[in-house]
Design a protein around this nucleic acid. Structure first.
Length: 393
DNA sequence: TCTGGGGTCCTAGGACCC
DNA sequence: TCTGGGGTCCTAGGACCC
């Protein structure tokens, strides 16, 4: 049987776990963008009870937050990654679980050599308690015949208090459960595909699995067919993916809109530096750089423009100045005066291992001095903070 | 005033090959 | 009049995920 573990309101739980005085209080985690903009990313049940929701911009709920003394925690991804690792570790120690994988910072999947619902529940209960004991993070567990069905089970574990955070979904209960699930809540059905299904008169997951496979095939790509099979009880998703990331990106929504090219150049330099640092940290190089720009999509009264361009580098590199040079060239090619820009970002792609670096016929091996410069920069920035050493022109 | 950020995978279509 | 067929590889963009 497939096991799914999902941390409850993960970012908020992490903040409470590391600041015990917040226990039982309304807490929201929000991303800070200098002048207090940003949106709510996660909230404790106490904050939810006030009517707050994930995704709401802070400015819309300032008063509500103030009146109810809601604690606002800035998002701290480093902390969450660390707690996530502890959870991973705790579960792996339970040696009957197989192929245990981390799917995202707050979700895990595994396979259990058990088929008795009672034993499955006992196992999940043990893991759940262990995780809470080690990390103070509450989790929900779902168990069923495929990854997608395990996610469905977790959905029920979360939304129906009677399950106590654990739901074992056996074949005999599958149809009943799916009849209560909106297609929009199926893993793999997003906004667009949900609408497609509604247009066909398909609203519940049960209606979805009763469609002929040929209909699913014509409506969706292979991913949709896999989802359909999984919900019908046939596992067909493989989660053991390649370990190396295939892209690294950094982008920001600015506090203010700007039409100032030098200002954008400074931002892009910074984004590249952040990406390049991550790249070197995982001992990789990249051969592709993308830069994108866009105006404020929420301002219908202003002229809109968005563009992004990718270029291929002559040879793979992780050298910040080389990447900055490429990125600025793109920026200059896509920048159009007369627009007010609100967001920009950089994506490094075509990532490979630094060891197997493939050199182009005419390119020189990376200058040893450049490598050492990067090393020193990374060490200083890690020790004294991100922008201790940054790159000028 | 103020509306996130970081990823993956799939597909269609173009460019190219013989 | 009539103008191949069968492939591969790459990439941008869309859909999805958290």
């Amino acid at each position: 049987m497939y096991l799914h573990i999902d941390c409850n309101t993960f970012f908020a739980s992490c903040e409470v776990a590391t600041q015990p005085h917040l226990e039982g209080q309304p807490v929201v985690v929000a991303n800070d963008n200098e002048n207090g903009g940003g949106i709510i990313l996660a909230l404790t049940p106490e904050a939810k009870a006030l009517g707050l929701k994930r995704g709401i911009p802070l400015f819309q709920v300032r008063n509500l937050l103030k009146l109810n003394h809601v604690t606002i925690c800035p998002v701290n991804h480093k902390k969450y990654r660390q707690i996530s690792r502890q959870i991973m570790q705790s579960v792996i120690e339970q040696d009957i679980v197989q192929d245990f994988v981390q799917y995202s910072v707050d979700e895990f999947f595994g396979i259990l050599p058990l088929d008795n619902p009672h034993e499955l529940r006992l196992y999940a209960d043990k893991v759940k308690s262990l995780i809470f004991q080690r990390t103070r993070i509450p989790v929900s567990c779902g168990l069923s015949q495929s990854y997608t069905l395990a996610k469905v089970a977790t959905h029920f574990a979360k939304h129906y208090a009677g399950y106590g955070g654990i739901c074992v979904l056996m074949p005999e209960n599958r149809e009943k459960a799916l009849s209560l699930l909106d297609v929009a809540d199926i893993w793999g059905i997003g906004r667009k595909n949900r609408q497609k299904l509604y247009d066909q008169g398909i609203h519940t997951a049960l209606q979805f699995i009763h469609c002929p496979e040929s209909q699913i095939k014509s409506l969706f790509s292979i991913a949709g067919v896999n989802t359909w099979r999984e919900l019908n009880g046939t596992p067909c998703i493989d989660l053991r993916r390649t370990s190396r990331q295939s892209s690294i990106s950094h982008s920001r929504t600015f506090a203010y809109m700007t039409d100032n090219l030098p200002e954008l150049e400074t931002q892009i330099r910074h984004f590249v530096a952040q990406c390049a640092f991550k790249l070197r940290e995982q001992k990789s190089v990249c051969q592709q750089v993308t830069v994108f720009l866009c105006t404020n999509r929420h301002r219908n009264d202003l002229a809109q423009y968005r563009n992004g361009v990718t270029t291929r580098l002559p040879s793979p590199t992780s050298d910040t100045p080389a990447l900055i040079q490429a990125a600025l060239a793109i920026l200059h090619s896509i920048f159009r005066p007369g627009f007010l820009y609100k967001q920009a970002g950089v994506v490094l792609g075509d990532i490979s291992d630094v060891k197997g670096m493939q050199l182009d016929l005419f390119s020189e091996p990376e200058d040893e001095r450049h490598r050492r410069l990067m090393q020193v920069t990374d060490t200083l920035n890690q020790k004294f903070g991100d922008n201790t050493i940054s790159f000028g022109k």
